[in-house]
Design a protein around this nucleic acid. Sequence first.
DNA 1: GTGAAAGCGCTAACAG
DNA 2: CTGTTAGCGCTTTCAC
Lengths: 338, 338
Amino acid sequence: MGNRHTSLKDLARELKVSISTVSRALKDHPDISREMKEKVKQLALARKYSPNPLAMGLLKQETRMIGVIVPDLVTHFYASIIAGIESFAKEKGYFILLASSNESYEKEKESIENLLKARVEGLIICMSQETRETSHFKSLLAENIPLVFFDRVCLQDQVSSVTADNTDASKKITRHFAEQGYRRIAFISGPEQLNISRERLAGYIAGLESCQLPVDADLIEQCNLSHDSARQAMNRLLNLPNPPDAVFGINDTVAFAAMKEIKRHQLQIPNDMGLVGFTDEFHATVVDPPLTSITHPTYEMGVEAARLFFDQLNSKQSPKTVTLKTRLVVRESSDKAR
Amino acid sequence: MGNRHTSLKDLARELKVSISTVSRALKDHPDISREMKEKVKQLALARKYSPNPLAMGLLKQETRMIGVIVPDLVTHFYASIIAGIESFAKEKGYFILLASSNESYEKEKESIENLLKARVEGLIICMSQETRETSHFKSLLAENIPLVFFDRVCLQDQVSSVTADNTDASKKITRHFAEQGYRRIAFISGPEQLNISRERLAGYIAGLESCQLPVDADLIEQCNLSHDSARQAMNRLLNLPNPPDAVFGINDTVAFAAMKEIKRHQLQIPNDMGLVGFTDEFHATVVDPPLTSITHPTYEMGVEAARLFFDQLNSKQSPKTVTLKTRLVVRESSDKAR
DNA sequence: GTGAAAGCGCTAACAG
DNA sequence: CTGTTAGCGCTTTCAC
């Protein structure tokens, strides 16, 4: 390999001045003469000098890297959030080090350790589904390492986080169903340790109550957010003695799985069964019929998470909670009127 | 911030020995006494010592980072490939630095520069759609920086690359259509500077010829791989005086766009119009009807790209070309028989 | 067996 | 205005 990068030393030698002179000239230090600055800058350009971030990092104790941990690397949902984080971080001259927990608590802990070993300056995390216990996060706090949660959050009084307005959004969904004439509205939730499950469930119930519809425990199903488990949940709903006439799926995967299962049972969407999801723009329009959904502002969520991160980094502020407004976009899957 | 990590110096001070002793003890240097090793290792563990990669990098001139540039961060296709790269790199103790070209030639060049400034040890790249000119890649080669292309490639005699068996696969598609009784088979291609466009077109034509079907220039459309442009292309096909009865879309986005447009024209898939794509497993099964497609081995492609990268890194070998086998998976969208 | 010292590329305090 | 020096964390050669 050899050293393919020009160093200050190289420049200094070539110009027959000291390293510090070169260093200062490049940063327009007032002490340096105009001509010297000229000469140095010109040579630096010619030799394609760029400061060695390792050396800088060592010196300044900063690596300009942020660790990002997501439950899963391959879904559009996280990819889009990551793109948001990346774009904000890039502006600030930071890079992203990416890791996936694969929805596993153990891998989450492992990823945190690896990223810290790589000397990231802090972490932006979406918790794994399995995570019930938060000591690994608390020790980050104890060590004063900047931390931000997005979408799935915990320790909200101590950690900055970005979420969607889950409760509100879910309430809107239930009310929308009711307005369309659906009466037995089911909800397929996720693991109860996740705030998104709890909040969306709360909204679902609040919505039912505000429409004077009864809350029927049979209509509340749970799954582990995997495709298969969501299909099974939908299947249980369909096999109920008194099945629902509408379903609210807690996220993309669940909504898709539900859709497949409904179709498999030869039921028409939206006439026999209404369906609404909680997805990003892209997926909702790809399926057939197009899915009514709360469009999750994924990219924006990433941007906000990064913004919160830098707030933490620059001045240890008290944790902030950002809640992103969502929109209910009505499409065919819940539009009986058509 | 302060220095939150334990250093060799810290350990040395605590044990009242020199830094070099600690360093040697930790790497089981034969000169060090058994007891000393014990003591050092124990304390290192207790203090959670982990070597500072910046210091190591500076010393050894290696950063253990690979730059990865994709045309787009948010699609499942690239996300899945990135996951493959990441998993292999992780094995080797390397991290990924991710950048997106957003299909722009300028951004691609910019990303290369940024990543080099960050001192990645080499690059794994999928070219932007706009890229026609390869001098920025050539200068990487000139500087002996390891480089691997995937999916979209160029300079194949000088650079290692992984691709799918595009020509073969496309031939299979055309032949499959013919077997199903389709006669006017159209192809929606991408920009001609991309090898995937040229190779898939070649396979499409070879397939037609092997079935004694005529090649009709009207049935070969082009788009820039965006959703809108693909819809327009499909639309042009549908408005032909003698429209096709089957369409082969060059990738995911194109196949989806085509599907929407076909539905908008009230045509039934597969009866009025057959449709086949070139997609990863996930997307093909989400749409309705499920899409017959060449399933693109995305994750595997990432793994192979990473493998080639390390081949390059470890010993400057002559460039290799890996071609991944694909499978034609017949689903409803082209299955007239049902 | 262990320590001292140099050096990777850089900045900043201190000299002159 | 410019140079010298120390030090960020680490490995390695050379001394003892």
